[in-house]
């Protein structure tokens, strides 16, 4: 009788020991005590600069969002444009979270078949045409021509889609893909 109680007690002790051992081993295995690694999101576009050149001079539209998904809204600036003028436009994309700033424009050029800019106009901005094309002869939009109408106010929305359907009918809905940029500039045409 005594032996059996002792045996039982031993058994219990063993169970408890086994349990605590297991707990210790598992704890030490899964411990991630060290400082976590910082994540700097790659391929971020912080700055979109549109340079519009005409015989009368140069105008710039810019959207700069240095904190990315952070709370600060992009800082948008737009120069005034001249009425009834055709501008030659070019787009530059930068990642200014890095120093020196990384030029994302080159990446878009290299992967031209996977990118396309879309332009949507309003008010005194009347026409836009693509001036560049990718290897398959489809538009990219890094280079384009923009025409202004009579004096007044107008707006241009520039959308960059990554991996859109190419060719497409020129609408965002048909193009699909992921939005890398969607910015609207309100401009004064004088």
């Amino acid at each position: 009788m005594k032996t059996s109680t002792t045996m039982k007690r031993n058994k219990t002790l063993k169970t408890v020991l086994a349990l605590s051992l297991m707990a210790t081993v598992m704890t030490s295995c899964s411990s991630d005590d060290d400082t976590p690694e910082i994540i700097n999101e790659e391929e971020i576009i912080t700055t979109l600069t549109v340079t519009l050149t005409s015989a009368n001079g140069t105008a710039t539209l810019q959207s700069q969002d240095l904190d990315g998904d952070g709370p600060n809204a992009p800082v948008i600036t737009a120069d005034n444009l001249t009425a009834n003028t055709t501008y030659t436009g070019s787009i530059e994309l930068l990642n200014e979270t890095e120093s020196p700033a990384e030029d994302i424009t080159e990446e878009v050029e290299e992967e031209a078949d996977e990118h396309q800019f879309f332009f949507s106009l309003n008010g005194s901005l009347t026409d836009v045409t693509y001036s560049d094309e990718d290897g398959d002869g489809n538009p990219i939009g890094l280079e384009f021509e923009l025409t202004t109408g009579d004096a007044g106010s107008g707006s241009i929305t520039i959308t960059l889609r990554h991996e859109p359907t190419k060719p497409n009918d020129g609408t965002l809905a048909d193009a699909g893909g992921e939005t890398d940029i969607a910015q609207t500039f309100t401009v004064v045409v004088e």
């Binding site: 704890t27 899964s30 411990s31 991630d32 976590p36 690694e37 910082i38 994540i39 999101e41 790659e42 998904d69």
Partner: peptide, 18 residues
């Protein structure tokens, strides 16, 4: 005892931290 590990290999900033 509970420990959470958010894998940085995602390349996306952690929604829930370590």
């Amino acid at each position: 005892y509970q420990t959470n590990f958010a894998n940085p290999d995602t390349g996306v900033r952690r929604l829930i931290p370590d």
